[in-house]
Amino acid sequence: MTEVTIRPMRPEDVADAERLSAESFLDLDRRMQRRDAPDPELRPPARREAWLLRTRHLLETDPGGCWVADDDSGLIGMATSFVRDKTWCLATYAVRPGLQSRGIGRQLLEAALHHGRGCLRGMLSAGSDPRSARRYRLAGFTLHPQMHLTGTVDRSAIPVVERVREGSASDTDLMDSIDRQVRDAAHGPDHPLMQRLWRPLVSDSTTGSGYAYVDGSGAVQLLAATTRATATRLLWAAVADGPAEQTIAHVTAANEWAIDVGMAARLELHSEGYLGLRGMSPPSPYVHSGALL
Rank of each mutant, 00 (worst) to 15 (best):
G218Q: 08
L20G: 00
S205W: 03
D171A: 06
M32G: 00
T142C: 12
R165T: 15
R43I: 13
R131Y: 09
R196F: 07
R278S: 07
E268Y: 09
V68C: 03
Q195D: 14
L113W: 08
R47F: 07
R34W: 08
D154N: 04
S73M: 08
Q246V: 12
V182Q: 03
A79N: 14
A22G: 08
T227H: 02
Q195H: 12
A254H: 13
R19H: 14
A237E: 04
Y213G: 01
V83L: 04
D179S: 04
D72N: 08
A212S: 05
P63W: 09
I178C: 00
T252W: 02
E268R: 15
R199P: 00
R135E: 13
R10S: 02
W67K: 01
R196P: 00
P38A: 14
E41S: 10
R106I: 06
L193R: 07
S177Q: 12
A224S: 08
H144Q: 14
F25C: 03
A265L: 09
L149V: 13
L58G: 03
D241T: 02
D215R: 07
H114E: 13
A258P: 00
P282F: 15
R183A: 04
Q195F: 07
L222F: 01
E162F: 00
M175K: 08
I248Y: 06
R134C: 10
E245M: 10
G273Q: 15
L90E: 07
L28A: 15
A291I: 12
T150G: 07
A15F: 06
T2M: 14
Y93D: 09
A249P: 03
G242M: 03
V160W: 05
S177C: 07
K86G: 14
I104R: 12
H191K: 10
L109K: 13
R117G: 07
R165F: 13
G140M: 06
A244M: 10
S21C: 09
L52G: 13
L53F: 08
S156K: 10
P192A: 10
H191L: 15
G167Q: 09
D179W: 00
A37S: 15
D190V: 04
A212K: 05
G276V: 07
Q221P: 00
D29L: 04
G210W: 10
V14F: 14
R180Y: 04
S21Y: 12
T2R: 14
A22L: 07
L267I: 02
R43D: 06
R31Y: 11
A15V: 14
G262Y: 08
R30P: 00
T207K: 03
A244N: 13
L267Y: 02
S209V: 01
W198D: 02
D184L: 15
R43K: 11
A139S: 14
R35Q: 12
P97V: 10
P189I: 09
S24M: 10
A240E: 13
M32Y: 06
V182S: 01
A240I: 04
D184R: 15
A15D: 15
S21F: 11
A17T: 06
R131P: 01
Y136H: 11
G64R: 06
Q195K: 09
G151Y: 05
